Computed example of a mutant assay.
Amino acid sequence: MTALDVLHEFYPELVSSLPMKNNVFIEMLDKKDLFFGNMSAVVQSKPTSADAAAYFIDNVIERSLSGSFVYTEIFEKLLVVMEEFNTQPLKQLASSIRQKLEGLSS
């Protein structure tokens, strides 16, 4: 199992949980340099939070974990934002994902 597999396992929960229509959450993602180019505007133009989350996950997180050069730091930054956003459901989801990722290195 890889970090990409973990992302796919938690994909439905991430899409339904990430508050991509919340300006504070978007600003937190931006401060962690998780948007490039016009990504923030594209994400915010999506009609629903779930659509925005799916676009963000597919085009930022999944891309960083795919291909010959796997870059897990971006996934890690998302987890930090989820923990810092300070809502219990996001913290729990981040914790579950971390546990699964830690199991990969053992």
Rank of each mutant, 00 (worst) to 15 (best):
A94P: 04
S96D: 09
V43L: 05
I57H: 04
A41E: 15
E76T: 11
L29D: 08
F85I: 04
E27D: 14
G37H: 11
R98N: 14
N23A: 08
V15W: 05
M82V: 07
N38Q: 09
V42M: 14
S45F: 03
E76Y: 09
E13D: 12
F85K: 08
F56C: 02
F25G: 01
F36A: 12
L79D: 07
P47W: 01
V60K: 05
V81F: 09
K31Q: 12
A94I: 05
E62V: 06
V81Y: 10
L14N: 03
S68R: 15
Q88L: 14
Q92K: 09
Y11G: 01
A53C: 05
S40W: 06
S66L: 15
Y71P: 00
T48Q: 02
A41Y: 07
F10L: 05
Y11A: 06
Q92Y: 11
G67V: 10
N38C: 04
M82W: 13
R98Y: 09
P12D: 10
N86L: 07
L65P: 12
P47F: 02
L29M: 10
D51S: 13
K91S: 10
L34T: 02
F10K: 03
L14M: 07
V60Q: 07
D58K: 10
E76G: 13
G67L: 12
T72N: 08
A54Y: 02
D33K: 10
F25W: 08
S68C: 13
E27R: 10
V60G: 02
S68H: 14
F35L: 06
D51N: 15
S96F: 02
Y55T: 00
S66H: 14
E13P: 03
F36L: 09
T72C: 06
D33W: 10
M20W: 08
G67A: 14
T48E: 02
R98I: 07
E73H: 07
P89W: 06
A53P: 01
S45L: 01
E62S: 13
E13W: 06
A41D: 14
M82P: 08
Q88E: 15
V60R: 06
L14V: 01
V70D: 10
A52L: 00
S16G: 08
L79I: 09
E62Y: 06
S40P: 02
S17Q: 08
R98V: 09
Q92R: 10
P19I: 00
Q44H: 02
N38A: 10
V15G: 01
K31M: 11
E84D: 15
P19A: 03
S49P: 01
F25L: 04
A53K: 00
V43T: 08
S66T: 15
L93C: 03
F25D: 04
K77N: 13
T87K: 12
E73Y: 06
F36I: 04
S95P: 02
N86T: 06
T72K: 10
S49D: 01
D58M: 04
I57Y: 05
V60S: 09
Y55I: 00
V81D: 05
S68P: 14
V42D: 15
F35N: 07
M28E: 12
A50N: 09
A53M: 00
F56S: 05
D58W: 02
F25C: 03
F85W: 11
V81N: 13
R98H: 07
K21R: 07
S64K: 10
E73D: 14
N22H: 03
S68F: 14
Y11L: 13
A50C: 03
E83N: 15
L101T: 00
A50H: 04
N22M: 00
E62N: 06
L29E: 09
S64I: 08
Q99S: 12
D30F: 04
M39P: 03
